Computed example of a mutant assay.
Amino acid sequence: MFDDVTTIIFLVLAVVIFLRLRSVLGRRTGHERPPFDPYSSQERENGNGPSATGDDNVIPLPGQGGPQGEAAPATSSATLDKVAPEGSALNDALRQILSVDRSFDPQGFLQGARGAYEMIVSAFAAGDRKTLKNLLSKDVYEGFVAAISDRESRGETIESTFVGIEKADIVEAALKGSTAQVTVRFRSELISATRDRDGAIVDGDPNAVSEVTDIWTFARDTNSRDPNWRLVATESVE
């Protein structure tokens, strides 16, 4: 009888311990894997993306290499000519960038820039300084943070919905020393309204879609092992 009671006690303890372990180890916390980064999916598939370095909010140069460190295929002239007409100044500038970095892919870059644009616009509206810091150059980051702080000091908040990007085109490129710069014109649709501390609308319309045109310049040091592009200049077009 004593042995039977002891066995039952140990079984109960084992079940209790198992349930406690399961409640901790088996519980989903939302941090099991990094959030999807729309402009670095290619690098993550190849094992060279931000998830390997712990930096999720970055703009990696497309085509940094394939599995087992294989070099990415060079961008073809036909692919480049789809982005900029052959013989144009833009085409020549993109070829200069390709001459120092054969993995540069203008079409892949545009895809990444679209994702970065949406992330930056949304982060600015939300006052998300952490996300912005990883995506912007020091000067641009300081400007964005100053605007956010000014907004917060007045007790204002932005309600923003990113509808989508209608069009994104590379309009300018340059190689300045070892630094590649690529400028993109974005035409997007947003729903945005700014409210004061009492909830009254002071700017925008929460029920109207507005068309916005921005010209943003991204840069990267091609000599650096850091594959990330950052926003270095912004311009809004009325």
Rank of each mutant, 00 (worst) to 15 (best):
S188L: 10
V202D: 07
R187E: 08
D139S: 15
D203S: 14
G164I: 09
G143S: 11
S210Y: 13
I148A: 05
S224A: 14
R102C: 11
R185P: 03
A180V: 11
S178D: 15
E166M: 08
T179F: 10
I158E: 09
R102L: 11
Q181W: 10
D105N: 12
A147D: 13
A233C: 01
V121F: 03
F162P: 05
V145S: 01
V202T: 15
K138L: 09
T222E: 14
F104W: 08
R154L: 07
F218D: 06
A174M: 01
V209N: 04
S153N: 11
S236P: 12
V145R: 08
T131H: 09
E172S: 13
D205M: 05
E159C: 00
V163P: 06
F109R: 01
R197D: 07
I215E: 13
S122I: 05
K167E: 12
I170D: 03
Q107Y: 09
D150E: 11
R129S: 13
T161G: 12
T157H: 06
I215A: 12
D139C: 10
L190C: 01
P106T: 09
E152V: 02
R102A: 13
F218N: 06
S224K: 11
T157W: 02
A113I: 03
L110M: 14
P227G: 07
L136Q: 01
S153V: 08
F186W: 10
A233P: 03
E118K: 14
K167D: 11
V212W: 10
E189P: 10
S160C: 04
L175N: 13
K138E: 14
N228Q: 01
R230S: 04
S236R: 13
K130I: 15
E235G: 05
E118S: 13
I158M: 04
R187C: 07
E142G: 06
D128R: 07
A123G: 12
R195D: 00
L231T: 01
M119K: 12
R225W: 09
T131N: 01
N228K: 08
R154G: 08
T234C: 01
Q107C: 11
K167G: 04
R187W: 08
N228Y: 04
A126E: 14
N207C: 03
F104Y: 11
A173Y: 02
I148N: 00
S149M: 10
E166S: 09
A116I: 03
F124L: 13
R225N: 13
A126Q: 15
L136C: 09
E118Q: 15
R195M: 10
D150G: 07
D169Y: 06
I148L: 06
D101N: 13
L132W: 04
V163R: 08
